[in-house]
Nucleic acid binder design. Sequence first.
DNA 1: CTGAAAGCGCTAACAC
DNA 2: GTGTTAGCGCTTTCAG
Lengths: 370, 370
Amino acid sequence: MGQTGEHGEAVDVVDVPDGVGGRMARRSPAPTMRDIADATGVSQSTVSRVLSGTATAVPIAEATRQRVMATARELGYRPNPLARGLRGAPTMLLGVIVRDIMDPFFAGAIEAASLEANRRGYNVVLGHAHHSADEAVALWGILEARHCDAILFLGDLRDRPDLVEDLQNTSIPVVALWHGSRDSGIPTVSVDNRGGIASVVGHLVGLGHRDIAFAGPKRLGDITEREEAYVAAIHDHDLIHRPGYIQEAPNDFEGASGALERLLALDRPPTAIVAPTDVLAIGMLHAAQLRGLEVPRDLSVTGFDDIPWARVSVPALTTVRMPTEAMMAAAVDLAIGGGSGHADAHPVLAPELVIRSSTGAAPSDAEGGA
Amino acid sequence: MGQTGEHGEAVDVVDVPDGVGGRMARRSPAPTMRDIADATGVSQSTVSRVLSGTATAVPIAEATRQRVMATARELGYRPNPLARGLRGAPTMLLGVIVRDIMDPFFAGAIEAASLEANRRGYNVVLGHAHHSADEAVALWGILEARHCDAILFLGDLRDRPDLVEDLQNTSIPVVALWHGSRDSGIPTVSVDNRGGIASVVGHLVGLGHRDIAFAGPKRLGDITEREEAYVAAIHDHDLIHRPGYIQEAPNDFEGASGALERLLALDRPPTAIVAPTDVLAIGMLHAAQLRGLEVPRDLSVTGFDDIPWARVSVPALTTVRMPTEAMMAAAVDLAIGGGSGHADAHPVLAPELVIRSSTGAAPSDAEGGA
DNA sequence: CTGAAAGCGCTAACAC
DNA sequence: GTGTTAGCGCTTTCAG
């Protein structure tokens, strides 16, 4: 203990034998309805009727109800969700499986899922798959089996086609988000990657940029779409697709730094870089500063997602705002909200360009890029 | 059952018309051991013996075992954790209740918890309390009742003393992290805030700083300790405690910006600012840049936690590295690892100073601070 | 209005 | 070796 004895002297009020995680104050293994019934002198089913909230089903004598409730409170009764679940009651739990919590984008998505779930009386059970698809499979097994009423998958799953296949055979609804909008048999909520990238490239072109590069990870559903959208946008603006202008970069700070190095080493370095995620873009900002480049004077950088950090990067990041809340609302509707569920099973939502300070006029041709 | 009437409507679960989240490939409501028994022509308990893994209990004819397993695989059998749980089996679930997932520090903590839990065959169930202590209470209720085998609370809970009290009466182990090291009756794992702040202030003093300020949120266990540690450190170095050098700042970017403004408006602005979290420190970096201040030439800034973003801030942040993994390992030990559990119920781990680029020599007295 | 009894899917004594 | 029989805590008929 940092500073013991300084303040609260650990006043022993209760008679707790030894407070460590092991043995707690009371030993009774959690009071059950039986206990309350015995203590109150009524039958267990009466207790159930009083305590299950479905009181309207059968009238109960007010006196009895009071006595039962009193004893319940006294004994500190808490319903056993396992037993309820066994009987077929919904667990009111929404499973969310994500591969990388540390990615602030997904952290935000989880927050949104949690909010949206709470709105409907649900709670979120988070399964964290540490980047590994195998763990995702295991988690799915855990969350399945009516432990959760529905499951959301965040991010791309296509490197595990068997998973996707299994998912269709499950007994509970599964919805995937940011899984790429290509059809894969399961309900999917996605963002219009093409539109988002188009708006970013348009913005850059409007600023006079002609040498626009892209750097992002490969083989990740959503991200791949953004790369394709970049190629399409370059084409749409009649720009030259220069060799080396598409760099592979893992979605982390090192990836950003490496890609920037390679881009700057080109014969004709780009004057602007389109990154498919804010993490990458912010990594570029940092790497550029280390390289002595000033953004946006020497180089413009754009991101995608609009994570909170994009507002406080130096300089603040021009990016594409992900409609996370709306996507999550749609996903939760698909998963649990819509019993009638005649909603579109594959909604694609529109993102929005957010212009901040990491983009500026293209440098004059002479000093192009660096 | 919080809200009546809503679900009581007995919605037909089966036979959902179209493929949205409704009808999946098969309609059988999940195969049970009974089904396998019937299909195989053995008794249900034999199926249980084969499938429950506890095979060593009673010998089973290899032929039978094979037949059972085959049918099980065929039917796509999955054990029902609810039923197992009802029987008293551990759920192998570790509940983690956190108030702010978006805070990257806690995101990292969750990641660590997840890793540590997985290492022991557990999975993490995340309860998200949206900053509200009331929700934390509700979550606790949900995760309790042997739905989880143990619960971790991340962050300070002391604004809800009743929660803490309840926690001691629970039937499952509860451990709190970053709850401040003052004793509160429940097992707690914390960091040596005092040591961490002392090292930061020492570093700053070594660089020639004499006018060192502090800005952080109030009334948050761990953070309050950091503030007290700052006061102590200032005193230990025989520095003058100047008025206004302790500013209140909510733990977000706006908070950082506001506090910086107020600090710079002082008669004698500080040459260095000690922030109790990296979020605040990075917010200051951004705000300083907006103000035209160059860090660390004009102002030094330090953080606490060493979140991943601290490495890529501009400039990279000098901070105190939280021993998150070690703390989490200790916490999980306390919660589930130690059945014997004779570990220290209140370990305090040491953080480590990480010097990067946001701190530098104090400006000469003339230009002090701005 | 209330009690008795069945059973959700599974495990664990007990029999044979 | 395998089948029978009890329940785990709860909801829900079905009888009073």
